[in-house]
């Protein structure tokens, strides 16, 4: 009985936490919408032929002068807002998730090794992390972007924007993973099961990945969720600053930047609908992150 409860405690807590369930539902909906955007969306915002200027600046369906075909209205180019947002979320999520994966692999790998070997290797990794910390996420991302502008020929720059943006975000997030993995590994290194494995003469890689890694997944999962939110925010911020993605392949941040032009005119939906959508997405992810933190650290409940 107790074993059963322990095993499914996370699940039990989940179905008894309305906030977590709603957040999961919203996040799942947005994820599905983003994945299936090409099949759901009314128009393809990248394809100039699929929309027309004549449909421009239509308000959402509940306002006067709207076209019921465009439920949330259109922008100045005549693009359906829902379609833009779905494609925008798709791009934001692709960048966020790939940056997260790179950061996690790099950070967890370095953190595990630093915690396992300790000593000089640990010192070097941590000093690099110090330098990285002195240059906060947004600065790192901007810098990499600037470097890419300086090094890459202009022709390639446009094609590589997504890659550069992803790399910039990944590099600014790896420290979180490295520090968490290192701290957790230190705790595990003192556990007797790890000493037993080392004593047996098992390969360091096996000790790190088969023995230690499964035991530090909890805190890493929390970092992963929180950092996914950060990655999406960072991408939006960079695109907002006009340094991320160009207007013809809009992410959520780019959509908001475009919407800013309509802050003072009457077309509020062009700015606020993508904004609300972005906030809902990030809030959902953060609520899930909070929930996971509670599950893995029950004392804070």
């Amino acid at each position: 009985m107790i074993a059963f409860l322990k095993k499914y405690e996370g699940l039990w807590l989940f179905v008894h936490s309305p906030a977590a369930m709603i957040a999961a539902l919203l996040a799942a909906l947005i994820l599905l919408g983003a994945v299936f955007a090409p099949w759901i969306a009314l128009v393809d915002p990248y394809d100039l032929a699929s929309f027309s200027l004549f449909d421009g600046l239509l308000p959402p369906a509940w306002e006067d002068g709207s076209n019921p075909k465009y439920l949330l209205g259109t922008d100045d180019q005549g693009r359906d807002m829902i379609s833009s947002i779905l494609y925008g979320a798709r791009l934001s999520l692709v960048i966020g998730l790939s940056a997260l994966t790179i950061a996690a692999v790099l950070g967890v790998g370095l953190g595990l090794a630093a915690g396992y070997y300790g000593g000089r290797f640990d010192a070097i990794v941590m000093r690099i992390a110090d330098v990285q910390l002195a240059l906060p996420a947004i600065l790192t991302a901007l810098l990499i972007d600037g470097i890419a502008r300086g090094i890459l020929p202009t022709a390639i720059q446009q094609d590589l924007r997504v890659a550069v943006l992803t790399l910039a975000i990944a590099l600014s997030l790896w420290v979180n993973f490295a520090r968490t993995a290192r701290a957790s590994t230190f705790v595990q290194m003192n556990k007797e099961y790890v000493q037993a494995a080392i004593m047996m003469g098992q390969h360091p890689l096996r000790v790190m990945f088969v023995h230690i890694l499964p035991n530090i997944l909890g805190p890493l999962l929390v970092i992963m969720t929180v950092d996914l939110a950060s990655a999406i925010l960072l991408e939006a911020t960079l695109s907002f600053l006009g340094i991320g993605l160009p207007a013809d392949s809009p992410s959520l941040g780019t959509l908001i930047r475009i919407g800013m032009q309509f802050l003072l005119s009457g077309e509020w939906w062009i700015l606020w609908i993508p904004t609300v959508f972005l906030v809902v997405l990030v809030v959902s992810i953060n609520i899930l992150g909070d929930f996971l933190r509670d599950v893995f650290n029950p004392r804070l409940r």
Partner: peptide, 25 residues
């Protein structure tokens, strides 16, 4: 707690825009 959760989830630039919109515009 709920407010701060929303707080960390709103990008800084959006907070700026909202403040401008409310108190400025």
């Amino acid at each position: 707690l709920m407010t701060t959760l929303v707080g960390v989830s709103i990008p800084t630039f959006v907070i700026g825009i909202m403040l401008i919109f409310i108190f400025g515009v």
